[in-house]
Design a protein around this nucleic acid. Structure first.
Lengths: 195, 195
DNA sequence: GATTACACGTGATGC
DNA sequence: TGCATCACGTGTAAT
């Protein structure tokens, strides 16, 4: 406890005792110091791991904490980025979606969508086998609000999938077949791996 | 630029000019100030958003940044908890996994797993249609390191899926059929909805 | 020219 | 005892 460091001489120090504009600057410095100490206290209360009440220690702990947080953020967001392609999908959707298909040159990738009327849609997609293609496609359909009624999947030399879907209630209705195609190509071509 | 604040009088200040043990403490204070400034610089280089080079501003920005980071961590981790059921699955796995199957009373739910040898496994699962059952099952298989080679899905009155899987390389090998069954029942019965 | 921010040296205080 | 940390008042450069 350092407790009230004995401000010693009250305002008006030795040299500028009688002048009219004596401690203008002094007061400013006092305020500055106070602000700084307040910030320091806030820091101490914000950062959980405070080893000592030292100024330097506080700053050091803060640095460590920030680094640790950014690290965690990074890893977690990486997992988030690869695991559910939904976010990327949604983003690509809201931002127009027809920039261009990222056709991942030199790997097979094609899709065929047929609107059967009555909210029913027939899906065919085929691409070179990549881990996660199936899960990405299923997720993409889910995001699009297309419920799979029946599907057949083969993942040997290529990944091939045929599915009959119905438009889920309450989801974004009236999606064009082309939108569906773009989304599926995107997700399947992405080749993102889960976990 | 505040640039080399003119240290003014070199070591040996006005009062302790001739004494032998004069500025012992002085040096210490110098070192202290240096350490503190170093920490401050490290902070400035660690925190991306530095509005001004002020000491107080630096601390303030740091506080804001830490708060923002913790906030993002919190929200992201919350999303992680709900969106991919993988984490729940993995947790259930590492913590024994055989507490009891949460058999979601009054809804159909059954699975059958056959080990075909050579890392090949035949999966059959059937449950009352619930949104997300397919995606949950596919995700679960992915987490288990089982790559789907072929599968057939029907989602009309019930959700039914048959699949031939092969053990993915590098993933946790030698999973018992019972473990697979438990995991699948869990995920399918969960009925968790993505997004 | 007034205000702001900093570094400096020093005395005080707790380990 | 010395060693570390702190608050203080002041000089001074930059805005």
């Amino acid at each position: 406890m350092r407790s009230m460091p004995a401000s010693g001489t009250h305002p008006e120090s030795k040299l500028n005792a009688g002048s009219g504009t004596p401690s203008k600057n002094l007061m400013a410095e006092r305020r500055r110091r106070k602000r700084l100490n307040d910030r320091l206290s806030m820091l101490r209360s914000t950062v959980p791991k405070i080893s000592k009440m030292d100024r330097t220690a506080t700053l050091g702990d803060t640095i460590d904490y920030v680094k640790e947080l950014t690290k965690r953020i990074k890893t977690v967001e990486e997992e988030m980025g690869t695991t559910p392609e939904e976010l990327n999908l949604l983003k690509n959707f809201s931002s127009g979606g027809n920039e261009e298909t990222p056709t991942r040159s030199s790997t097979k990738l094609c899709a065929n969508i047929e609107n059967q009327g009555g909210g029913d849609t027939k899906i065919e997609i085929c691409c070179s086998t990549n881990p996660g293609a199936l899960i990405a496609t299923v997720t993409a359909l889910d995001v699009l609000g297309l419920e799979i009624e029946q599907c057949v999947v083969s993942c040997f030399s290529d990944f091939a999938m045929q599915a009959s879907c119905s438009q889920a209630e309450g989801k974004r209705q009236v999606i064009s077949t082309d939108e569906i195609k773009q989304a599926l190509l995107r997700s399947a071509g992405y080749g993102a791996r889960c976990l």
